[in-house]
């Protein structure tokens, strides 16, 4: 495919800013609008920009993990966050949090839900990458009939 230098430059700019925004959503999600699902969608949209600029190969170069590994890993993380409270004798999905003052960041409140949300984030990103694997590749030669 022919590539446009304008598109390539913009894709780099947009991709990184969108990823930062998606991480913001992920961390802000517990008490403000956002969360793992929304964050994951924004990150996936960032990936779409690369797909438009460079096609499937560019998307594959983004990560050395395969899409299903990302999806599966996210699901493992989310289900661990759901199951661990059971071991501690609490209810399924019960959340807990720690507060503290950190250098640079200031006052921080960390909830265990963040672990669950990160899992969801990875699942959404992995899913979108899988959709690209399945539907976004160049058509095979045999389809040109």
């Amino acid at each position: 495919m022919t590539r446009s230098p304008i598109m390539d430059t913009i894709a780099d700019l947009v991709f990184h800013s969108a990823i930062v925004l998606s991480l913001y959503f992920l961390f802000a999600g517990h008490n403000q609008p956002g969360g793992g699902f929304v964050g994951g969608l924004v990150a996936a949209a960032a990936v779409v920009v690369y797909y438009v600029a460079g096609g499937m190969d560019e998307v594959r170069d983004l990560s050395r993990f395969r899409p299903w590994t990302i999806l599966g890993g996210g699901l493992v993380l989310a289900s661990l966050a759901a199951l661990v409270p059971l071991v501690a004798g609490d209810a399924l999905l019960q959340s807990d949090y720690v507060e503290g003052d950190l250098p640079v960041l200031g006052h921080v409140k960390l909830t265990s839900t963040l672990l669950f949300d990160s899992g969801v984030y990875a699942v959404v990103v992995g899913l979108v990458l899988m959709v690209f694997e399945g539907l976004g590749d160049e058509p095979e030669a045999e389809d040109h009939t």
Binding site: W68, T69, G72, L75, S79, L83
Partner: peptide, 15 residues
């Protein structure tokens, strides 16, 4: 409910 979902996740990773 939770165990099969967790198991499904591991099953994807070790595909």
């Amino acid at each position: 409910i939770a165990l099969p979902i967790g198991a499904a996740a591991v099953s994807i990773v070790v595909g």
